[in-house]
């Protein structure tokens, strides 16, 4: 049991204690993070108690590393928990999907134009889907297509980034560029966001 009650500490007290490397404050932070991770991730089969302990330990180091980037508008503990959750989920995502062998069916769904029959079945919604397929085939670069297919296939960003040897931020930017192109492609064909939304909601 730590000598410091986490709930009693102000933002300033956390900062001062951690900057001084006060063992009680470090312990209180680890305990606090551990409890938070148990509450938010403890129900997951892939996250055992020992894992969460390890993640909490590592998260304390991450927090110490990033202390200078803490902004006082946030509660210190919420900020620390955000770092801990990012660290933990990144580890679990990496573990869940070690390679990026993409599901060929996702790629086929997005590029195969034999879906024309579906358009007849589903009317305007099917037409919009066919147009989206066209957009994926014609408007995107190979890399953008690869990223979009991987995302829809549930490949974690961190895994894809490692596979493509770029940063996760670069993967996000590629995805954003691709989505913007597809949005413009649909819009040029008369499908603005409102129309797309109506078609998606009309089942």
């Amino acid at each position: 049991m730590s000598g410091v009650e986490a709930s009693d500490l102000s933002n300033e007290a956390w900062l001062a204690g951690l900057r001084a490397r006060d063992a009680d404050v470090l312990d209180a932070l680890r305990e606090r993070i551990c409890l938070g991770l148990q509450s938010s991730l403890g129900h997951r089969a892939e996250a055992g108690e020992a894992d969460l302990d390890d993640f909490a330990q590592e998260a304390v180091l991450r927090v110490m590393d990033k202390l200078d980037s803490y902004r006082a508008e946030a509660r210190f503990t919420t900020w620390a928990m955000a770092l801990a959750v990012r660290l933990s989920l990144t580890k679990l995502r990496r573990r869940s999907r070690k390679d990026v062998s993409l599901d060929a069916s996702v790629a086929a769904s997005l590029t195969d134009n034999s879906g024309a029959t579906e358009a007849a079945t589903h009317g305007a919604r099917g037409e919009m889907f066919n147009l989206l397929r066209q957009g994926v085939a014609q408007a995107l670069t190979e890399r953008q297509r690869q990223v979009i297919v991987a995302e829809l296939d549930g490949v974690p960003q961190v895994v894809l980034a490692e596979q493509l040897q770029v940063s996760p931020g670069a993967v996000y930017k590629t995805s954003h560029d691709a989505r913007r192109k597809l949005k413009a492609f649909l819009s040029d064909a008369g499908y603005d966001s409102d129309t797309v939304g109506e078609l998606l909601d009309a089942r």
Binding site: S109, M128, L132, K183, L200
Partner: peptide, 19 residues
């Protein structure tokens, strides 16, 4: 169908995309 699910998912992402 699986095809439709992927396209539905993509269309929703595209719809929510901001500049």
């Amino acid at each position: 169908t699986a095809d439709e699910r992927h396209l539905d998912q993509l269309a929703r992402l595209v719809k929510e995309t901001a500049d």
